[in-house]
Design a protein around this nucleic acid. Sequence first.
DNA 1: CGCAAGTTGTTTGTTTTCGTAAATGTTCGA
DNA 2: TCGAACATTTACGAAAACAAACAACTTGCG
Lengths: 266, 266
Amino acid sequence: MSQTLRHPEILEIARRDGKVTVERLAAHFGVTLQTIRRDLTDLAEAGRLDRVHGGAVLPSGTSNIGYEERRALNADTKRAIARACAADIPDGISLFLNIGTTTEAVARELLHHRDLLVVTNNMNVANILAANTDCEIVVTGGQLRRADGGLVGPLATGTIRQFKFDCAVIGCSALDADGDLLDFDIQEVSVSQAILRQSRRTVLVADHTKLSRTAPVRIASLADLDAMYSDADLPEKLAADCEGWATEVVRSWVVDDAGPSWQEPG
Amino acid sequence: MSQTLRHPEILEIARRDGKVTVERLAAHFGVTLQTIRRDLTDLAEAGRLDRVHGGAVLPSGTSNIGYEERRALNADTKRAIARACAADIPDGISLFLNIGTTTEAVARELLHHRDLLVVTNNMNVANILAANTDCEIVVTGGQLRRADGGLVGPLATGTIRQFKFDCAVIGCSALDADGDLLDFDIQEVSVSQAILRQSRRTVLVADHTKLSRTAPVRIASLADLDAMYSDADLPEKLAADCEGWATEVVRSWVVDDAGPSWQEPG
DNA sequence: CGCAAGTTGTTTGTTTTCGTAAATGTTCGA
DNA sequence: TCGAACATTTACGAAAACAAACAACTTGCG
């Protein structure tokens, strides 16, 4: 019973993307398809993955299917945004991460940060960051929303009001042309607003799909935030507005990280 | 006796990169492969790293693994206890489930109950019961304990004080001959005591292994509870005490519901 | 100086892993 | 239902990684 250096990384990729393919992993590690198949067989026997034709998926028993699909959607894009956001987060601060697949991606990029105090109302974020033993995790209370593992309601806002964060990373369902952050659930909006009030620095993470959607409840304006991270350029007028509001706009590009993984770190 | 200077640095590199290779370390330190192998063997024996072919990786969730093993331990017994407990829980009530593998088993047996309001400080319980769409789930806030997904601390007790439960199901680490419930973590004890204060009916779930163990912090006495569910008969004196305290003792038996086990013909 | 304990480099034979290739299974469209 | 394309399993030899034993070296001490 011997492990392989690849196994942990395969699991990480699987958790990140929800699935892995033999072909892609072989290209990623620079080994043959057979070798990857052997790895997947081992991991499946250990119950860490479920083997499927052409690859493997996370073992069933993890939550909501619709949610998993949504998370897999634009996974590369979200990761790129999350990486840019995480790069601007220093070690040792207090940080809030709220509901949303993009904020979860940020959590994944924070796995090697140290001495963070992370407060979240997202059970998935808590689960992800539990792997980072160098940071403390606090979960707000609240009513569990099955769709995405979010905790909302007065318990959540009440907990948040007991903190003051160095930084808050929030997501939203839509971002309209006026620079207003919008969401579907009024309870979640209350939580987001409480977060904004309790934070020294607030940043938005939102991929380009948010720009072409709309939602009924207003959270705040980009004018109220310190920065936003996205994978697309903002419409010209909104970009100008942000400049006027002193809201930093960080544009990230998707990089294909499927290349060899053993580039020597400096 | 000088400890090897390389060991701390190897661990640091491992934490930074998640993994180390024999080859890279040998080049880094300017020593032979054998020497690095000896270092890695030492570190693996000390439990600081997991040895793999070609290098070593961070021990993946040492605490988590211990937990998984603990959960698998006596799974049949715990399910039997949980089934008896769940059978006495009517639909439509408010219910608290706290930390513990046995309470998680109770959650699994509640998957077909209806109209429950379940409050828990156990992330695993919340994840399990999320599958039951006929009940509402509230998670208390608190500091995340990686070992078992428990939420503890003042946030947890504060949340609990905002409720009044029809029933609370609690576990404990040990149950001594005097009928005292004991635990290891004083924070968790505070939570359990808060739960007991806020509940109309309180029950304990504990398998027989709890009777032969001990722990330092006292939660309460069986005299303060309404019922206990176990898989073993209590010692004679304690059983008599429970009768005097009007504490109902429910003894359950393991039934093999796994169907016939595999029998190869011929 | 000599000795003992500890560490490292070298050599040896064994175990594990990996790539190749052929045989067997699976998927999917006609 | 059939067949082609793709995926998987199986087997085997080569290469890499391994553990164990021993020699050379350093260090600490009387």
